[in-house]
Design a protein around this nucleic acid. Structure first.
Length: 581
DNA sequence: GCCGTTTTCGGCCCGACTGTTTTCAGTCG
């Protein structure tokens, strides 16, 4: 079983225990364990099979969960889950996902009305039976019915890039309000997660009501979900929820820290504060002395973390993974930034499925401050994209040679190729052609649903080819659309490390592949990461920023990123440690 | 169920808002 699958089982156990009104800390323990496993770079099943004791070393996994993970890894099933499901139908969990319905209300519906499914719930609401229950009334029925249509129509997370666009529009809209003094976006958007579920806005305002009125007037607002003195929530017609909090100036940093999260990061931070006789909430850091609380800090995030002798963590690292450990050791990485990148190593042109010419791509890259650009059109197997056979490829490379002469110093076009890894294994172009490339990436477009061993072998074999520099979009995932291939990433990392090869972090906002966790794993193997756009048109060269965000989330520094090197340096590096001399 | 510079028991982050209540439970983030 994969880490994601094991984590999903533990999450389901947590959901069911919550429904049963079990000890909330026990529920949290299962959720923490699930998160720890999801964040793990090694296969937890492999660890369990290899040495059960090592499971206990993972933060958040104790004796009980370790045994359950071992059982899952061995048999693929968890008796505890089977027993819970015999008691509670799985379909009630869907009811808990309706906004406003939590475990208590779902349990009341199930036990008192026998409601097991969303359909039954809808009927019960329409028949007016729900309002008869204690704690429910007509308004709750309405909320449930609204929530159900919403759950059916929306619920999908936005790509970070989409969220960013709305965020910028919101910022522009609110800045037209005279009462606004300070504004920042927080939440998973600020942490740079690959997808964003909702937006969190934070403001300091002379007059909160004025900012809230302005907020309600944001184009696309379909309904106001709630509005108090300091907090307001709206839903856009697209289904996206946006929360606005108005805080006092002296609390802005504390609120920003608080609402940036992650939740796990905050829980850990608050625990640290408590040990020191401090309390942190969204209003600040307070010294607790009996019943008296004295404000210590809160205007800026630096102050808040500083009160605990901690560095102001970059938001991308705030996931309760390694950041506190790094801070304690004084080893917080200095994360890579967009300005560190000197070239783009995965782009397409009109010659295959791109939209612009080589010259246009080169000019756009130069305008963006890049010093080199690899043209990596598709190889012949990708017929839909009119992929290049050896003859057309060699002709393109001749053209690149000529263009380089015209471009002169200061910018270099690289003769590249995105060579397909064929379904039956092996590469789509002969070695003598690949040998003439400056830069060859290999990738899978066909046979994505092959079994684990087969697809892993294809990638591992491609890494062994002396002319291949890098594997592009190594897992093939498409956010919200397609899961990663069944690929043994540990085997891929080991092979890349063995052959001195690189792995791509594809910056397309719908891919972001490798993801943050895989980037961290690759780093632990010493594998250089290539942050590349896979641009099919000039504007997409801007996508590097999305890749950079993921790289930062993976804890990568400039030194971990191959295209932070100049082309001569990179070229030298390609010769070292690989069979390509 | 996890964890340990309050260490094998007894804690476990904290507050806003809503709806349903007449003082608070439930939900959410």
């Amino acid at each position: 079983m994969t880490n994601a699958e094991i984590a999903a089982v533990l999450e389901q156990v947590a959901d069911l225990l919550e429904f049963k009104d079990e000890n909330p800390f026990r529920v949290r323990a299962y959720r923490n364990a699930a998160r720890a496993i999801r964040d793990l770079t090694e296969s937890v099943a492999a660890i369990a099979a290899d040495d059960g004791e090592r499971l206990l070393a993972i933060d958040g996994i104790g004796k009980a969960v370790a045994e359950k993970v071992a059982t899952l890894a061995r048999t693929g099933h968890l008796p505890q889950l089977t027993e819970l499901l015999a008691e509670i139908p799985e379909s009630v969990l869907a009811i808990m996902r309706i906004p406003g319905i939590g475990p208590k209300k779902a349990a009341a519906l199930y036990h008192q009305l026998g409601v097991k499914t969303l359909d039954e719930l809808k009927q019960a609401c329409e028949a007016g039976r729900v309002r008869e229950l204690k704690g429910f009334a007509a308004k709750t029925e309405r909320t449930i019915l609204d929530g159900m249509t919403l759950a059916a129509s929306a619920g999908q997370r936005l790509y970070w890039a989409e969220a960013d666009q709305i965020a910028q529009e919101l910022r522009g809209h609110l800045q037209g309000c005279a009462a606004l003094e300070q504004l920042e976006l927080a939440g998973s958007y600020r942490r740079g997660r690959d997808t964003v579920g909702d937006l969190d806005l934070l403001a300091v305002a002379g007059e909160a009501a004025e900012v809230m009125d302005r907020f309600a007037g944001f184009p696309g607002v379909a309904s106001v979900l709630g509005r108090g003195d300091t907090k307001m929530s709206v839903r856009l017609s697209s289904g996206l929820q946006i929360d606005l909090r108005i805080v006092p100036r002296e609390s802005f940093g504390a609120a920003l820290q608080y609402f940036t999260g992650s939740k796990a990061h905050n829980v850990f931070l608050r625990g640290l504060a408590k040990q020191r006789g401090l309390k942190i909430n969204e209003y600040g850091v307070f010294r607790v002395d009996g019943d008296r609380e004295t404000y210590v800090a809160g205007a800026t995030e630096e102050e808040v973390y500083g009160a605990l002798d901690l560095p102001c963590f970059p938001p991308e690292l705030r996931e309760a993974r390694r950041e506190f450990e790094w801070a304690q050791a004084g080893e917080l990485p200095e994360l890579v930034c967009r300005e560190d990148l000197r070239g783009d190593l995965h782009t397409h042109t009109l010659e295959t499925d791109g939209r612009d010419t080589i010259e246009e791509m080169a000019e756009a890259a130069r305008r963006r401050g890049l010093k080199y650009l690899a043209i990596t059109d598709h190889s012949q197997r990708v017929t839909m994209a009119h992929g290049l056979d050896p003859q057309r490829l060699l002709a393109q490379w001749e053209q690149i040679d000529r263009l380089n002469e015209q471009l002169g110093r200061g910018f270099t076009l690289l003769k590249g190729i995105e060579c397909d890894i064929l379904e039956k294994g092996g590469l789509d172009l002969p070695d003598d052609v690949l040998a003439q490339a400056d830069w060859a990436v290999a990738s899978i477009h066909y046979g994505q649903r092959q079994p684990r061993d087969q697809i892993t072998k294809r990638i591992v074999d491609a890494l062994a080819n002396p002319h291949v520099c890098c594997i592009a979009h190594p897992t093939g995932r498409l956010l919200n659309k397609r899961e990663a291939y069944e690929v043994d990433m540990d085997a891929v990392f080991a092979a890349a490390a063995r052959h001195g090869k690189m792995l791509e972090l594809n910056s397309n906002p719908m891919r972001l592949d490798l993801d943050d966790v895989a980037c961290a794993a690759a780093k632990s193997y010493g594998i250089p990461i290539v942050i590349a756009t896979d641009a099919h048109q000039t504007e997409s060269l801007d996508d590097l920023r999305y890749g950079v965000l993921q790289a930062r989330r993976g804890g990568l520094t400039k030194a971990d990123v191959a295209n932070a090197l100049s082309w001569p340096q990179l070229k030298k590096r390609l010769g070292i440690g690989s069979e390509k001399k």
